[in-house]
Design a binder for these strands. Sequence first.
DNA 1: TTGTACGCGTTATCAG
DNA 2: CTGATAACGCGTACAA
Lengths: 381, 381
Amino acid sequence: MPAPKSPRASTPSAPATASPARATIADVAREAGVSKATVSRFLNHRDTLLTPDIAARVERAVSALGYSPSPMAQALKRGRSRLIGLVVADVTNPYSVAVLRGAEQVCQEAGYLVMLFNLGNDSGREREAMAALASYQVEGFILNTLGRDPEAAAEATRQGRPVVLVDRRHSGMQADFVSLDNAQAVQMALTHLQAQGWRELLYVTEPVRGVSSRTEREAAFRAGCHPSQQGEGRAALSGQTFESQEARPEAPDAPVLALMAALQALRERAAGRPAAVLSSNSVVTLRLSAAMARLGWQWGRELGLVGFDDTDWAPHVGPGISTIAQPTHDLGRLAANCLLERLRGLSLAPRQILLPGTLVARGSSRAPANPEALRQEPTPP
Amino acid sequence: MPAPKSPRASTPSAPATASPARATIADVAREAGVSKATVSRFLNHRDTLLTPDIAARVERAVSALGYSPSPMAQALKRGRSRLIGLVVADVTNPYSVAVLRGAEQVCQEAGYLVMLFNLGNDSGREREAMAALASYQVEGFILNTLGRDPEAAAEATRQGRPVVLVDRRHSGMQADFVSLDNAQAVQMALTHLQAQGWRELLYVTEPVRGVSSRTEREAAFRAGCHPSQQGEGRAALSGQTFESQEARPEAPDAPVLALMAALQALRERAAGRPAAVLSSNSVVTLRLSAAMARLGWQWGRELGLVGFDDTDWAPHVGPGISTIAQPTHDLGRLAANCLLERLRGLSLAPRQILLPGTLVARGSSRAPANPEALRQEPTPP
DNA sequence: TTGTACGCGTTATCAG
DNA sequence: CTGATAACGCGTACAA
C-alpha cells in the first residue's frame, strides 16, 4: 500500500507545517483509492448500492480525514446553498429577536444556516438586503420588515425564491404569511378592559404608514369601540386613536410631551368614567410609561393599560402591566417551517397562518376604583 | 451587432420564459465581445490599465446586464468569502443583540455579511457552531460565548482564522478581546453606593463557573468591599456574594425564593445600616425585582440597587433602577473593526480593548432614608 | 457498480 | 494590453 501523498503538495512554496487545510473530496478519494465520483455517490446517493468493501473504505477515509463537503462548492454546483436569508426591520425589537430565535432553531435542525440582514429601521434598504443575501444564493427569505418597499416584492418574485412574511404583509407579494391574529387579540383586550369596567379608550400606535399589522390592529380597535357613543345607555366602549411620533434627535422628548397631552385629553373626554389605553407594542408602552411618570399618574389608578407584547419586564413596571402575549417563538418556528416545506417542493397557494394571542392580566388593567361604570348592564338588552 | 443570445440556452428543456437568472461573467464577456479574463480584470484590477474602448464596452455590458459577481464562486476561487461568523451564547440577551447590531453595521459597511449562530445557551455546541460557520468559509469569528468549551479554542487556532472575543475571554485562545472595563465599572458602582450612604452590600450574580466577565466583576466587588469589617470606625463597605440559580422547569420559582432569603439575610446582617444590592446583569435585576415584589419591599427604600446593563425599561421599574450602562454598540463596532483589521493583514499581538461604563443614577440608589451612615467620614484618615 | 470528463462562476497564469 | 486555459471543490451524465 503506497504511503498517502502529503496533501496540498501542489504549492511548493507553502511551508510543510501549513495548517492541514480542509480535506477535499479528492483527498478522500485518494485516501480510499477510489474516484471522486464514488466518494460523491457514497455521500449523496446512499440508496445507490455500493460494494460493501468500497463503501467501507470510503467511510474510513472520510472519518480519517475528518472530511465534510464544502457547502460553497455544493451551492455553486447545484444551486442549493443550505442558507436561509432573514431580513429584519430592527434587531433591537424583542419581537424580531424571538422570531429570529425560533427560525434559527428550526433551520439549524434542518441543516440550514441563517444569514441575517438587519435594516436598522431603514426600510429603504430592503431591496439591497435581499440582493446581498441572494448573491450568496440563499434558498429562501424570511421577511420581518415593514413591507413598504414595493421593489422588494418585485425582487423576490423575480428571483423565484420562496418567501415567508412574518407579522407584516407586503402588498404585491405572493408569499406565505405568519402572524398573530390581530383582530382576535385586539378584541380580547377590549373585552377584558370592558369587563374590568374601563369605558373610555385610547389606542396608541406608532405611525401606521401602511404597515399591515398596525393597520389591522387599529381597524380592530375602531371596530370594537363604538366611537363617541357615550350618550347611549349601552355599556359600549368608546375610543380614539393616537399616533405616537418617532423620537427625533432635535427634540428627544417631543413624543413624550405629545403623549402627555393625549392622555390628559383622554381623561377629560372620559369625564369621570374610567379611561384606559391600549398600546400597540412594547416600545410604545415604554413611551407611555414615561409620559405617565411625568404626569405623576399610575397605571391602574389614573389610567388603565393593556399593551401588546409580553416582555420580561412587564410584571415589574408599576403594578404590573397587562399584556397581550404573542407566541413569538412559535411564529418564528412556523415561518421557518413554511419556508422549508416550500424548499422541499410544496406547491400550494400562499398560506396564512394566524396564531391567537394570550391575555396576561396584571395590575395595570384591574378594575378601576371608581365603580360607576360597573352599574351598567354588561350584556346588551 | 448580433442579437445577444438568450442566456441559459444550454438547457433545452428549460422553458423560454424562465426567470432571467443571474448574469454570469461569461454573459458579460459575450455582451461586450471580450474574454472573461478581461471582464474579471476590469472588475478586480482597475489599476491594470485597460484600453479605454474596451473598458467602456465592459462597463456598459456590466450595467446593461446588471451583473454582479457571485461571492460563492469568488469564495471558491480565492478563499475569501466576505463572510464573518458571529457566535452568540444567547440572542435573547439584549447585550448580545447590541453587539450584533454594532458588528453587523460595521461589517455591512465594509462589504461583509454576518452569519449568525445562536447557541441558545447550550455552550457545548460552540465547536459545532464554529465548524458550521467555517464550512461556509467565514473569514473570521466574533465570539460572544461563555468561553468554556476548550475545544473551541483549539478549533479556532487550528483553522487559522482571526478571532475576536467579546465580553468573555477564552482561556487558551490567542485573540483580540473587547469588553467593558469590569473593574472600573464595579468600582464606580461601589463608590456611588457608598457616597449615597449605603453600607452593607450584596453582589448577586449568575453562577460564575469560570466565565471571565463574571469572575472579574465578582473579584472587583470583593476587592472593593472590605468583607465584614463592620466593627471598624471606617466608612468601609462590607459585602458578600450570592449566586442566583438558574430557573429550572420543575421548580420555576425556586431561584426567586432563594433570592428572597438572601435579601432578608442581607438586611439582618446590616442590622439597621442601609443595605444595597449590586446586580450582575439585567436578567438578575429582573429576578431581584421579582423577589422584592414578593417581599413587599421597594427599591430605594428597603434596599438600594445598582444593576449592570442600562436597559430601556430600567427607568420605569419602581423608582427607576440605577444602572451601569455599557457602551454596547461601540463594543460591537470595535469588535468588528478589530476583525476587519486582522483580515486586512494587521499582525499584532492580541489586543485588549476595555471601554469604561457609565453610571446612570436613578431612584433605586438614592440616599437611603436612614441617615445613620452619613455621619461617618467619607474619606479615610 | 465504478471511473472519466465536464461544468458551476471566478480568478490567476501564461502566452500572444 | 488582451485572450485562452487551468483550477477552486463538487455533482453528475455518460461510458466502461
